[in-house]
């Protein structure tokens, strides 16, 4: 099951997503929280201590590859998704792991 959280800036998306992820985790399910915000802040709500932020290894960009299948171009992940979650997701409390999308390389690079 996949849940996406959207809304205007400042509406409380991150607080609601993070708390929701943890409460679903506490119900016994294994949850992957994906921080798709280019200014990532979900780790705090998920209960990751600021000291362990260094452990977060953001998912690199450019993981998609174009393949030609029967003459049609298909776009898909260039690595198995299990491998990506294994290599990049960080364990958080309450059965939740966190995957952070790589932030932009720096001002003016996007």
């Amino acid at each position: 099951m996949k849940v996406s959280v959207s809304g205007k800036g400042g509406s409380g998306k991150t607080t609601i997503s993070g708390t929701l992820a943890r409460l679903i985790g506490r119900s016994g399910k294994r949850v992957l929280a994906v921080d798709a915000d280019s200014n990532p802040n979900l780790a705090l709500t998920l209960g990751l201590s600021t000291g362990s932020y260094d452990l977060i290894n953001p998912l690199p960009h450019g993981l998609m590859e174009h393949r030609r299948v029967n003459g049609e171009v298909q776009v898909s992940l260039s690595r198995p998704v299990e491998e990506l979650t294994q290599d990049y997701a960080v364990n958080c409390p309450d059965n939740v792991s966190l995957l952070v999308l790589g932030p932009p390389g720096g001002a003016g690079t996007g």
């Binding site: 996949k2 849940v3 996406s4 959280v5 800036g9 294994r30 949850v31 994906v34 915000d37 979900l42």
Partner: peptide
């Protein structure tokens, strides 16, 4: 079991 995505604004 579950994926929760926090999107940008």
């Amino acid at each position: 079991d579950v994926v929760v995505v926090d999107n940008e604004a």
